[in-house]
Nucleic acid binder design. Structure first.
Lengths: 196, 196
DNA sequence: CGTCCGCTTGACTCAGATCAAACTTGGTGG
DNA sequence: CCACCAAGTTTGATCTGAGTCAAGCGGACG
């Protein structure tokens, strides 16, 4: 788990904090002094529009980095919130940047993580451009499968999957049913068989 | 323009190619030897689903890097296509990685670019989660505006804007009209005034 | 044993997609 | 300088499929 790796590498420039109620880690506009990593639970990036609506820009899960963009910006662009029950690793921004400058291999690894994220985010956007629920599901599954694979074990819940691809769970279940009826996939619980 | 910067830094490990018809830069599954940058025109990342449907995973514009993920992967995950009329910078993968390893500042800069992209992509996804065209437009504009700004000059066309936020141009124009009628914005050509 | 949550299905509604058509703008080339 | 073509802009009519609300089932977990 790279969050743990980071904790070791940074030594005293890192620590872990635990929150048993929702807690604001930073406010939009604050000067950036830290980057974070989620070790347990969730953390959210949130933005308030000028009309007062709240939009969640990102939900980080256990194992993921959080607010990486802080490294490259003088102030935060969103509010950062640790959700009740979360354990959050806190890294000194300057120490991180130093480490990247000094250790090329580390910098490359960090870039790799970011590149992976960019890839996944892009795929997700293109996915959501598909109007039809059925196409969207099939495309999402295709993206998650290897080239020749035809079987897939859903990591989370179907409801969660629906959210990830931008559908309501009802729409998802109905589309799944149609896909099964037209023999484009078979499923049993959370295990999926493509084609036939 | 950072693509140009890269060309200088990499010297003989970089070159520019021009394409007057659509051209496949690389196929999915090919070993990765190059990363690219778009200097003019467009390049697409494309994937073919097992049902034969084509999905465009990414459309890179002039000035953007293209297929950065190739740096961290042994083979391409998509097909890469230079659109007719494009000028594409071609960078040796190994030279890029070397440079990043050796030059910490360069690595940090590269990460910064990626971080910026991640931010924009995330915002975009959250944007598309909004059902209402009006909310979507207002939120998109809010994201592009500075905190206190109230005026904005649209960089591209309205039609392009519609695509970026996942609406048809018809839906966009109609929603704009409603927003104007309810005095939530005013516009004149491509210049926009929020509120009143 | 009760509660929570994921799962599943039904009925209805509506906002945005789609198809169509006209007008404007801008740029190209003769 | 004007004719012309391509692309953006604007509006109308219609339709459809996903959202919403509602309700019931079953398994997990304390």
């Amino acid at each position: 788990m790279p969050v743990m790796e980071l904790l070791n590498r940074l030594g005293s420039a890192a620590r872990i904090e635990t929150f048993n109620v929702d807690h604001v880690l930073f406010h939009r506009g604050d000067a950036t002094h830290h980057m974070y990593g989620v070790t347990h639970g969730q953390a959210h990036l949130r933005r308030i529009t000028r009309e007062g609506a709240e939009i969640i820009v990102h939900r980080a899960q256990g194992g993921e980095l959080f607010a990486e963009a802080a490294l490259f910006s003088s102030h935060y662009h969103c509010d950062g919130i640790a959700i009740a029950g979360a354990k959050i690793a806190v890294f000194e921004k300057t120490a991180m940047l130093d480490l990247m400058q000094r250790d090329g291999a580390f910098a490359v690894m960090f870039c790799q993580r970011m590149a992976g994220q960019v890839q996944r985010l892009r795929s997700n956007i293109e996915l959501r451009a598909m109007r039809s629920a059925e196409d969207r599901i099939m495309a999402a599954l295709s993206l998650r499968l290897g080239e020749r694979d035809t079987h897939y074990e859903l990591p989370g819940t179907w409801k969660g999957f629906a959210q990830e691809i931008g559908l309501t769970h009802e729409a998802l279940y109905r589309a799944l049913k149609r896909l099964e009826q037209s023999k484009r996939l078979k499923r049993e619980g959370r295990s999926i068989q493509l084609g036939v």
